[in-house]
């Protein structure tokens, strides 16, 4: 049912950004705007911005490592009582599921520096789903209900 998924996606407001850290500001603004219009609280909007930032940063840093002039698409839409945020890229497949959760009980010297962004994404959102497709590229879909 791939065609259906694309059909749905095509109706979501979507923007393509250069895959550079300098555009994280705009990506966060875009998500905040859609969420604010959808009646999400400022507290939840901050969480959505943080989760999207972490997802986009990972794509730029890992999926597109060493690849110049890459782009990523961000789609964002409120459907009923939840917001759906989708990030698409054509970089190296990077499944967050394969990243080990950081040990938050570890003391200062043993605390891991990596994996934190993905951990935050999972904690901040209700669902995080990743799909790698040889043709369409990588799609990360995150949802969060309005509370």
């Amino acid at each position: 049912m791939t065609w259906r998924r694309h059909l749905v996606l095509s109706f979501m407001p979507s923007y393509t950004f250069p895959a550079k850290f300098e555009f994280l500001d705009e990506i966060r603004d875009f998500v905040a705007e859609v969420a604010r219009e959808g009646g999400f609280t400022e507290k939840t909007i901050y969480s959505l911005q943080l989760a999207t930032d972490e997802a986009a940063s990972n794509i730029i840093e890992h999926a597109y490592a060493g690849i110049p002039d890459a782009t990523l698409s961000v789609a964002c839409e409120v459907r009923g009582d939840e917001i759906v945020i989708t990030l698409q890229d054509t970089g190296r497949p990077f499944d967050p599921e394969n990243v080990r959760e950081p040990n938050l009980k570890a003391d200062l010297s043993n605390r891991q520096i990596g994996g934190l962004g993905i951990y935050l994404m999972r904690k901040l959102m209700d669902s995080v789903q990743y799909e790698a497709n040889a043709n369409a590229g990588n799609t990360l879909t995150m949802t969060k209900r309005r509370v």
Binding site: R28, Q49, D53, E54, S57, L108, S109, I113, L116, G117
Partner: peptide, 19 residues
Amino acid sequence: EYMSSAGFRALLATQRNCK
């Protein structure tokens, strides 16, 4: 106004170095 995990990492690395 805002800090992502990129900032948290800088805090962690600095705390390690300071302590």
